[in-house]
Design a protein around this nucleic acid. Structure first.
Lengths: 342, 342
DNA sequence: CGGCGGTACTTATGCGCTTCAGTGCCGTTG
DNA sequence: CAACGGCACTGAAGCGCATAAGTACCGCCG
């Protein structure tokens, strides 16, 4: 591998000491404008870039942050959420020349092990924690390790910053949409019950249903693991009931599409006899026939917000609770008034 | 942040010098079995882990490899391929305590810039290059930088190792399946024409069609950008022709699902009047109705193979061409003999 | 019994950078 | 005019580890 220039090379060529170079390149006082410019020029010419290891070693900053995704292999990858999120995160990180360490593991214990290792190896300056849970061991661990973190989708509170979306309000919005159309029997096909946002959505569903005068016999949640298989199974189950719901709200796009396939298979017309709403929009919702009404969020923006907040925390900022842009309901062909005939 | 133990701490506590500790922990000769065991025990007790920056600085190894994904934002995330691949990659890397730097960028120029930066900053020891192209600037760049690399899905040749899947054979298999069923007018909805594997598939399609005595008027490829939108558009276009194909082969699952939705919309029964095959299986292929016949590959295994090869290259091994497990065609309800009536 | 080779260590140096404690110089001030 | 403070810069130490170059000791042989 070709030898890469160091500040020593720059110092020699510019006729100054190494520390002058370091000062100049890091915008620190103690170097005259002329000298600074000269040093900058030489650095440019030589194509110098700081050696991240050396910088990390002396500066106590690794210049990298971590993100670990704990998902059993079979639920991996059909969701559009993550790559979008990561894409947004990196727009912000790249500007600050921060690298992203990414790891996918099987479960939350492995995730904790990764944090410990990253901490011990000083690999990362901070982490983005996704999929916050109702009973979550991670914040305590990270606090103990004093590893800066931002909870992506967290509810706030505790020592860490959170960025969050207003799930409660979004759920209210969806229910309102369905209620106005005339639906009175609505089932929410929820995701993993342990996840904080699932709990928030379920709670909001109950509250809002009560407000509309609809009891748990008419509006309720059933939980799944987010996979297409469980989404389909849950759909089959509720549609087989004597008084099936006239509308289904799915916690992600994959389950919504799976559910819509089940309806097709059972020859239940959508939206005439069954309305379908997907939480999170993606190409999937537009490739089904009919296309699915979906709750649209700007996931990349969410990622940007999370990354910005992590940078703020790394810069010494206080923990904050930051709300993402409000999601928007995009009505498509899969929701309509329930036909009286059914 | 709590102070993390260093080899100095271990040395003090074990009553030996720092180098003895280094030797002991790195399985190098020059330390007695007893001392080695004692040092190991102390290290264990203190929960010591090597500081990656220090190791990188003195050892010239960063202990990390990189993967960059160049995709325009809108085509991101609906495919199951990547997270599966990454998941497989990490199974192998985690065992060797290698971290993965992951970056998603807009295009290949940005990707090259990332390689340059990683190289200059000594962030990574090597990279995994995905989506090889027919005219690809990346191998030359990486060779110039002397950055070890493995081409994931490459065709071999040149200075780098490749891991690849036998696309030609898989295409032959698909055509054979359709031909046996009686299909004579077949259209391949291909992905991005610049990608090497797309080119391989298209070439194989031509060769095999010729062998079966089917000219380009009956069997051909049309190119897209892999997105659901273009997949749908292409489907609409070819189905509107006077003599539409009786079978469509899609280069990914997303387009196959989009295409199947178009068929539903046009009230073209699948598989009676139109057979559909998806290249790459995922939950998507199982949530449509009918479920899609798909070319199943073990993508995680592909990732493992790629990571293993990269480790081999980093260990000084010669460039090799390694073939992944053969893909398998999984017939489902979307393929059947074309009904004579149509 | 001197020398020799091997084992089991220690000491010292360096990786590339940051940073702190100087040093020399100049202009200002009482 | 001596004392002083500030500026522009240098020198050196140190981050945690790897490693080359010693050193001390032991057993063995001629």
């Amino acid at each position: 591998m070709a030898r890469r220039p160091t500040i020593k090379d720059i110092a020699r060529q510019a006729g100054v000491s190494q520390s002058a170079v370091s000062f100049a390149l890091n915008d620190r006082p103690g170097v005259s404008t002329d000298t600074r410019a000269r040093i900058r020029r030489v650095a440019e010419e030589l194509g110098w870039q700081p050696n991240s290891a050396a910088r990390a070693l002396s500066g106590e900053r690794s210049g990298a942050v971590g993100l670990v995704l704990a998902r059993p292999a079979h639920t991996l990858g059909v969701e559009s959420f993550f790559l979008q999120l990561v894409s947004g995160i990196q727009e912000v990180l790249a500007a600050g020349r921060i690298a992203l360490l990414f790891q996918v593991v099987e479960d939350i214990d492995a995730e904790c092990a990764v944090y410990r290792r990253w901490w011990a190896e000083r690999r990362v300056d901070g982490v983005l924690v996704v999929d916050p849970r109702t009973r979550d061991p991670r914040p305590a661990l990270l606090e103990q390790l004093a590893l800066p973190a931002v909870l992506v989708g967290g509810a706030g509170g505790g020592a860490h910053s959170s960025v969050w979306a207003d799930d409660a309000r979004a759920m209210t919005r969806i229910l309102e949409h369905l209620h106005v159309l005339g639906h009175r029997r609505i089932t929410h096909i929820a995701g993993l019950p342990g996840l904080a946002h699932t709990a928030r959505r379920m709670a909001s569903l109950r509250t809002e249903a009560a407000r509309l005068g609809l009891g748990p016999d008419r509006v309720r949640s059933v939980v799944t693991d987010y996979s297409d298989a469980e989404g389909a199974a849950a759909t089959r189950r509720v549609l087989a009931e004597p008084e099936p719901p006239t509308a289904l709200v799915y916690d992600n796009d994959v389950m919504a599409v799976a559910g819509s396939a089940v309806a097709a298979e059972l020859a239940i017309p959508v939206p005439d006899r069954l309305s379908i709403v997907a939480w999170d929009d993606s190409a999937l919702c537009r490739v089904t026939h009919p296309r699915l009404t979906a709750l649209v969020r700007d996931t990349a923006a969410f990622g940007r917000l999370a990354a910005e907040e992590l940078l703020a925390v790394l810069a010494g900022g206080p923990p904050r609770l930051r709300e993402a842009e409000r999601p928007r309901l995009e009505p498509r062909e899969s929701t309509a008034p329930p036909t009286a005939a059914y």
